[in-house]
Each structure stands twice: as structure tokens, then as C-alpha cells.
Design a binder for these strands. Structure first.
Lengths: 343, 343
DNA sequence: GTGAAAGCGCTAACAC
DNA sequence: GTGTTAGCGCTTTCAC
């Protein structure tokens, strides 16, 4: 079978303990000894057995990330951020995609209970906050992206949903819009809620009355955006701009407008969120809010790794204030009037 | 600390060995005993320690997947396919994205040597075949997606690149095209090579002469497609259709055509590969070849798990013939003439 | 059908 | 600075 630490020890003429010390750059080992050991390791192409190491040290040096769908750009970026930071600190990353399988996310807690991972990052809006809090109380290290959990030992990383939503509405207002519709995401998602909040706050700030008829519920899917826009139109009330809680729903709006012959942005201005890559290629280009996924992943991973590095992980130590990252509006054709000159 | 198997054993009034047998549905355990044990497990919310299990059983029940970029739809789909199959067989999946870091993929072999994974799937075109073969010879279980390695114990899963490329050219010919250009991917990728091969074979079959001037090299990036099209134009030779080895490069072609005022598909027909989601949204819609990523991931994972299940993994047992999956042409606007009626 | 006991390969006290 | 040794929690012969 494979070489073990004792083999290296014998080859280098030292004890296994010394080899272990060299492997983990522990304490002081005489330079000469260290080199002998390193040479032996190289000579026999030795690789320490991860399972044994984990069993003994009670740490897996692995972080799990639970996402709804890795084939969604924002989630992929978050994962990359986590992965990059984790790797730089000597951690591995296990990704769990629970696509479609309702309730399935919770099964992934098993990873934590099995001690397969040292920490778990949830990017899943569906996971109930109480369940997360409960697990954190048991002493497990958990982090969340995309919403805030009111719990001391659960670090969260979110974007400034309220902020940028207000900016989107402000942008519309500057373009001369007064009647601005909103298509929301599903209720459970804090993101969706906060974007609605920003929308309403902005209306107030700009002295525009809030009209419930201008708000329609969606569920972040293209299809739901399509249907929401049709419902808005059926009401017969006027509106010249629509803010959708994500780009997918904006694509649905495009589809509806295409079918109904509504011209974007002249007849209807559109603004989405996520800066999906499609935004740049669709005609007219879709204005959107860029979400710093990579940054969020990276920052949260850093925070979690810091927590894991504490003496008493979970109890005491640093508290986990929410990390809020700034988003950026990307203004494209869909939200700017393009009146042909000479009209 | 956590509960251990001995705690469950005591609670159920049996030995740890029996608990272990129940946990792994081994041999016959008396129904009554089994239930007592299961009850105890539930009562104390016991979760077996993965590291201990791995150390003892010498298996991690984990498969690694190495991809260039999880934020590319095709790779994400492959991963999902692997993950789904793996999970159904009780395996975990570790994903490694080596984006941008040249040569970095090789470091991931450490996972294999550390016994962190039982098998490793390479979706990385850059990884040299010889290195893969070498590792396989050492007895490691390896699989490859997207190209074939001439090695008995390395299962490969590829699409029918030559086939579908011929179909694309055939489609162009049926549309009346005689001068069809080709923009290839980078040389190292077998995919790119085979697509070129299919293109040439089809030209031959349709009695069209092969003209080297109609072929330009790209590297699968949008930018390279853009430049390749401009180079083709600069030559001053006529062509009415272009087949790009992937959709990204087709997007570059769109950009170049936009700038030069070349109308798609009337003046130039375009066909890509991958069926990137953008294809459906860009104007005009891009014709493309759908690659069954999910299926490839799933099939290869199944094969590898079967190999791992053999008595003597690596030596003897089933041989690893290449698995070829069928792709499907999705014909959209970019490759169909749309002559306004009455012209 | 079930139990006792010997490790899997490593790390971390504790000696020296 | 380095060696000795006792486990980490589980599975797996081998008895019974």
C-alpha cells in the first residue's frame, strides 16, 4: 500500500513525530533535520493520508457551500470567491447543488454532523433561519450569503439591496419617469423583500405616491416576469418603467413586450438585478445591478476561516456582524430614452 | 464531544460491531436487533464520523471533478450530472475550478494521493494525456470528459464532434451555401480538432473543395472569434457562412458583423456549438449544437463508480471503452435565410 | 447472529 | 529538539 509517516521517519532516521512537525511546520525543528525529512518525503513521493489526519486532529480543513444552482452565474461567482480564499488558506471546498430538490438542502447538514466539513456556507434562501440558528447554537460553524440571520455566531454577507434599489428608482426618476412598476421575487427571500423596501423608500423620497397596483409578485423566474408584466398591463393603469427584482424576470418582461409590441425603452424602460451575462447581449441591452458575488464569497470564507482559527470556535471570540458589500448600477439601453434625433 | 458508535451500542444494549453492521446494512442482523439499534441512533441523533470511517475502510466515497471554469454552462451541467449520479450512489463530489491558473490543475492530483477522493474526473483539456496515463498506471481511478485517452483503465466520455460538425456543414449546404468558413478552437483541445475534422470531411462529401484560407484559428474566446472573422474578411475571399467551434466565438463574430454592417443571416450565416443560453436571446438567435453535459457527467460518474466497486480496482476488471454521446443541432435564425417576401 | 479486539495513519502530550 | 506512546472513531476478522 501507500507509504506512511513511519516510512518517511525511518528513511530520514528520525521519529514519526518529527516528520509530523515538519509537515505541519510546527515548533522549532533543527534546520538540518527538517531538510533531511523534506528530502525523504520527496524521495519517496510521500503524501500524508487526509483521513488519518482529520481523525486525529478533528479538523477536515474543508468548507461546504450550499447553493440552489451552480449554473447560475451569481452562485458560480460566489463559489469561486469562496474557493479561492479557502485554497489560499489551505482549505478545500465541497459544493452542494440542491437544484430542484425541495427541502433537500437540509440534508446537507449531515456533512456538518459527519464532520466532513468544518464550516458550511448557505446561499440558499429557502433554508429557514431558525434551523440555521439552532445548528449554530449546537456549536457548528455556519455562514450565510444573501440575507441576515439575527444570530451572534452566524456571519452573513449581503449586498445593499435597499440602497441600490433606491438608486434604480432614482435613475428612473431622473429619466423623467413618474409611474414606475415593480416585479418582486418570492417572499421568503430577504433579497426580494429588501429590494421592494428600497423601491418604496425611493418613491417616498421622490414624492411619488405608492400605488399597490404597480407591484406584482414574481418568483425570480423568467416565466414569472412574463406573467407579471401581462398582469400589470391588464390592469389598464399606466406605467412607463419597470424594476424587476432580478434579470431573469426582466427577460420575461422582454418576452411579453415583444409579443405585445411594446417598445423598450421608449414605451417601457426596464431595470434588472444581477448583471446576468445575457443582459449585455439581448436587444436592447438590459440595465442591471452588478452583484459582487466573488467578493461576497471571498469575504465570508475569510470570516469563517478566522472563526475556525479561534481557540474556542463557536463560543465567544469575535462576533459576527453582517458584512455588507456595495453593488453597482450598470446602465444600458433598456433604461435610457433613445429618441431618434429630428423627431 | 460528539456521540460515538460505542454510545449507540451501549444505548441499544449491543456491541459496536453490530451497530456498524446495521449502519452499513451488512450481513444478516436479526430484525429485532436492527430496529433497537436504529431507534437508538435516532434517539441520540448519531452521525458516524466520516474521517474514522474513511481511515478504516480506505475509501472516501468522494469523487473529484476538475473543470476549467464552473461559470461556463457546459461545465456546470457536467458537474450536475456527476453530482446527481454520485449522490444516488452514496458518493460526495469535490469540485475544483482552476480558472486562469495555468498548470494549476496538476496540483489537484494531490487529492488523489492524499486519498481525499476515490476517483478524479478531468474536464480539463490542458491536462497532458501522458500524465493522466501515468497516474492511472499507479492504480488511481481517473476519468476524462471531452477527449479520449488511449488507455485501458481511463474511461472517457465525449460527444460526437465529427458527426455533428458534418451535420452543421450539411445544413449549410442545404441552405445553398458553398463557401463555408470555419473558426477553430485551440489546438490542444481534441474537441476543436475533431470539429475541424468533421468540417473537412463534410466539405469532401458534398463535393466542395477544401480551401485553407477559409479556416482561421481561435481559442474558444469571444475576442478570438471577433478577430478571426476580421482576418477572414481581410483576405477578400468570399464566404456566406461560418461555423465556429463554440458559441463564444460566434458571439465575437456577431460583434464583428455588427461593427462592419454585415447582416446575419442574409449576408453571413452563423452556427456555433454548446447551445449557450445566450444563443436564444441574442438577435438574431444563434443556431448551435446542444452538448449533453449533464448526461456526460452522469454517465462517466456511473462508470467510475462501477470501477470503484470492483474487487481489484485498476487492475483487470471491466475495460474502459470510450463513451460517445449524441449531440443535437438547434437550428435558429442565424443559419436560415429570411428573405422578406415580395423581394 | 453477535461480541472482542486489533488496527487504519496520524498528531499531541509528555518525556528526555 | 526530538522520541515514545496513546489514542482519534470506526470496521473487520475471528471466536463463540
Amino acid at each position: 500500500m501507500d507509504k506512511k509517516i513511519i516510512d518517511v521517519a525511518r528513511a530520514a532516521g528520525v521519529s514519526p513525530a518529527t516528520v509530523s512537525r515538519v509537515l505541519n511546520n510546527r515548533e522549532l525543528v533543527k534546520e538540518k533535520t527538517r531538510e533531511k525529512v523534506l528530502q525523504a518525503i520527496r524521495d519517496m513521493n510521500y503524501h500524508p493520508n487526509a483521513a488519518a489526519k482529520q481523525l486525529r486532529s478533528q479538523r477536515t480543513m474543508t468548507i461546504g457551500v450550499i447553493v440552489p444552482d451552480i449554473n447560475v452565474s451569481l452562485f458560480a461567482e460566489i463559489i469561486k470567491g469562496v474557493q479561492n480564499k479557502a485554497e489560499s488558506k489551505g482549505y478545500h471546498v465541497i459544493i452542494c447543488d440542491y437544484s430542484g430538490r425541495k427541502g433537500r438542502e437540509q440534508e446537507y447538514f449531515a456533512l456538518l454532523h459527519n464532520r466532513t466539513v468544518d464550516a458550511l456556507i448557505f446561499v440558499s434562501p429557502e433554508m429557514p433561519s431558525e434551523v440555521l440558528a439552532e445548528e449554530a447554537d449546537k456549536g457548528f460553524t455556519i455562514g450565510v450569503i444573501g440575507r441576515q440571520i439575527g444570530h451572534d455566531s452566524i456571519p452573513c454577507c449581503c449586498t445593499d439591496n435597499v440602497e441600490f434599489s433606491m438608486e434604480v428608482v432614482g435613475h428612473f426618476v431622473r429619466q423623467g419617469h413618474r409611474r414606475i412598476a415593480f416585479i418582486s421575487g418570492y417572499q421568503e427571500a430577504t433579497d426580494a423583500y429588501e429590494r421592494l423596501e428600497g423601491y418604496m423608500k425611493a418613491l417616498h423620497r421622490h414624492g411619488l405616491g405608492f400605488e399597490p397596483e404597480l407591484i406584482e409578485k414574481g418568483d425570480f423566474s423568467e416565466e414569472s416576469g412574463y406573467r407579471a408584466l401581462l398582469r400589470l398591463r391588464e390592469k389598464g393603469i399606466p406605467f412607463t418603467a419597470v424594476y424587476t427584482a432580478n434579470d431573469e424576470m426582466a427577460l420575461g418582461v422582454y418576452k411579453a413586450c415583444g409579443e405585445r409590441g411594446i417598445h423598450i425603452p421608449d414605451e417601457l424602460a426596464v431595470f434588472g438585478v444581477d448583471n446576468n451575462r445575457i443582459s449585455r447581449y439581448i436587444t436592447p441591452n438590459l440595465s442591471s445591478v452588478e452583484q459582487p458575488g466573488y467578493l461576497m464569497g471571498s469575504m465570508l470564507a475569510e470570516k469563517l476561516i478566522a472563526i475556525l482559527g479561534e481557540d474556542k470556535p463557536g463560543s465567544g471570540g469575535m462576533t459576527a456582524g453582517p458584512i455588507e458589500v456595495k453593488s453597482r448600477l450598470i446602465i444600458r439601453e433598456s433604461s435610457t430614452f433613445v429618441r431618434p434625433s429630428g423627431r
